[in-house]
């Protein structure tokens, strides 16, 4: 049984007929070709699939596509607007990524973090990232990146 849903993804209107069980992450990756959003676990731990759903960071592997009906979605592909988002730039400048797999979800979470707490302490940054796992960086340079982005965005 297909269900019709409509959403706005990275500013473009999307209409799809989906199975109820289709996960939002699969809708984005498989149906819409937005493979920047990654799937790294089955248990909502790793955060690689994090996207902005109506402006809030959510794990798209734990949301059904039908639940997102009528929503606005921003994925990593929609973050840059002609130039890199300050968070993307800060990840690059601070070597906040190595293999890059966690990076799209990590960047989206960091954007969300600063949207609610524009000047976080290091401790707040580290706790703010508890929903995103990175196996490469030891988080050291990710923290630096968020601090840099906060400075840029507050500047």
């Amino acid at each position: 049984m297909g269900i019709s849903i409509e959403l706005e993804v990275n500013g473009a209107s999307v209409s799809e007929e989906v199975e109820p069980r289709l996960l939002l992450a699969h809708l984005l990756r498989e149906e819409l070709g937005l493979t920047g959003t990654k799937i790294g676990c089955d248990t909502s731990q790793c955060g690689s699939c994090t996207i902005l759903l109506d402006g809030q960071a959510v794990k798209s592997c734990t949301v059904l596509a039908v639940q997102a009906d009528g929503s606005e979605i921003t994925t990593i592909e929609g973050l840059a607007n002609g130039e890199y988002h300050p968070m993307q730039q800060a990840f690059w400048d601070n070597h906040g990524l190595q293999c890059g797999f966690c990076t799209p979800g990590m960047i989206i979470s960091c954007v969300d973090l600063l949207s609610t707490n524009p000047q976080p302490s290091e401790d707040e940054i580290r706790h703010g990232l508890e929903g995103n796992l990175c196996r490469c960086t030891g988080y050291h340079n990710i923290v630096r990146a968020v601090q840099t982005a906060a400075e840029t965005m507050n500047g």
Binding site: S44, G47, T50, L53, Q56, A57, V58, K59, T62, V63, S109, D112, L113, G128, E130, G131, N132
Partner: peptide, 9 residues
């Protein structure tokens, strides 16, 4: 509870 993403949902 959980993490910031989980708390939104």
């Amino acid at each position: 509870i959980g993490d910031r993403q989980v708390r939104y949902r």
